[in-house]
Amino acid sequence: MSVMRHASVPGPAQPGLEGYRPVQTIPATQRVLDSGDLFTAGREVLIQHAEEFYRLRLTRKGKLILTK
């Protein structure tokens, strides 16, 4: 993913970046899923990939952990 600067919301206090904040651009063909939609029923979801199952967990600190 590329990062570009967008002049709208003040960003971090770094020299030369006044008035700018980093913005992630997402290709139009990329599907975006909101993590809030994934964890509506709890803090863990199972993902099946081919014949394998993976567990995606949401930690107390809001981090994501993917395990096989």
Rank of each mutant, 00 (worst) to 15 (best):
Q24A: 10
Y20G: 02
P22L: 00
Q14W: 12
S8Y: 09
V23S: 05
T67L: 06
S8T: 09
S2Q: 07
L64Q: 08
D37E: 09
L33F: 07
Q48A: 14
G11H: 07
V32S: 07
E44N: 08
D34M: 04
V32D: 01
E44F: 03
R55L: 06
I65Y: 00
T67D: 11
G16T: 00
T25F: 06
F53A: 11
R43N: 13
L46I: 10
T59E: 07
G19N: 08
Y54L: 13
A7C: 07
R21F: 05
V45Q: 15
D34N: 09
G11Y: 03
A50V: 08
S2L: 05
P27D: 12
Q14R: 12
A13P: 05
E52Q: 15
Q24D: 02
Q30W: 05
E52D: 14
K61F: 02
I26K: 10
S2R: 12
Q30A: 14
R31M: 02
M1Q: 04
L46F: 11
L17I: 04
D37P: 00
Q48E: 09
E52C: 10
Y54E: 02
F39C: 03
S8G: 14
G11T: 06
G11M: 07
R60W: 04
E18T: 09
F53D: 07
G36W: 01
L66V: 13
R57P: 01
M1C: 02
Q48P: 02
S35C: 12
R5S: 06
L38I: 05
P15R: 13
R55S: 06
S35I: 13
P12G: 12
I47R: 11
G19I: 05
Y20L: 15
G36Q: 11
L17R: 10
E18W: 03
V9C: 07
I47Y: 06
K61E: 08
T59Y: 05
P27W: 04
T25K: 10
E18M: 06
G42V: 07
V32I: 15
L17F: 11
T67G: 10
A28Y: 05
V3N: 10
R21G: 08
H6I: 09
R21Y: 05
H6M: 09
R5C: 03
R57C: 07
L64S: 06
Q30R: 15
H6L: 14
E44W: 04
R31G: 00
E52M: 12
R43C: 01
E18S: 13
P10Y: 01
Y20I: 01
V3P: 06
Q14F: 11
V32R: 14
